[in-house]
Every structure is written in structure tokens, then in C-alpha cells.
């Protein structure tokens, strides 16, 4: 299969592989350890999957904001995202 037209690059491939792995892990977790939704600080019911979605979407905006405003290395934004992810999974 020729995928040249999709113009793949290493970093974007890693990006999608990571997201695919995350989805896979959360699917397996969902089957192995079923859960009940809980209410966090957003006062909405969230499951693990919801929290993953909030984390990913929020991380995208954190990265965008970092890129637009800070002018510092982009890697640092990933650190903020990690803190954000922990916070989301702990309190949301």
C-alpha cells in the first residue's frame, strides 16, 4: 500500500500511535475494570473515557496557548499537560 500521498512524518506518526495506544489501553481497562461514572468539580458525570477526552482536548489548547504566548521550548508545555492530566483524572 502506497501512503506517500498522506505525507507521513515521524513525529505525526508517533502522535497518532500514542493516541491509538491510549484508546486501546482505555478500551481494555474499560472491559477489565468496569466503572461507574462519577461527579467531579465540573459537576458533570464523567467516565474514564470522558476524562481522557477532556485531557486530550485541553492539552491541545494548552499547547496552542504555549506556542502563541510563551516563546519558550514547546516541550515545557507537555509538562503542563502532564500536570493537567493528573488533575483531570484526580478531580474531574
Amino acid at each position: 500500500m502506497n501512503l506517500n500521498w498522506m505525507a507521513w512524518t515521524g513525529p505525526t506518526a508517533i502522535f497518532f500511535i500514542v493516541i491509538a495506544c491510549l484508546l486501546l489501553i482505555f478500551t481494555v481497562l474499560g472491559i477489565k475494570y468496569p466503572e461507574t461514572p462519577r461527579r467531579g468539580i465540573l459537576t458533570i458525570e464523567t467516565t474514564r473515557g470522558d476524562r481522557l477526552f477532556i485531557t486530550l482536548l485541553g492539552s491541545a489548547f494548552i499547547n496552542a496557548g504555549w506556542l502563541a504566548l510563551s516563546g519558550l521550548p514547546q516541550w515545557w508545555a507537555l509538562g503542563i499537560c502532564a500536570i493537567y492530566a493528573v488533575a483531570v483524572f484526580r478531580w474531574v
Binding site: 500521498w5 498522506m6 505525507a7 507521513w8 512524518t9 505525526t12
Partner: peptide, 10 residues
């Protein structure tokens, strides 16, 4: 969408 992501960094 994946293709668009690939384009966006090149």
C-alpha cells in the same frame, strides 16, 4: 484528518 495533521507540520 490524519493527512491534514501531516500537512500542518510540512
Amino acid at each position: 484528518l490524519m493527512t491534514v495533521v501531516n500537512y500542518s507540520v510540512q
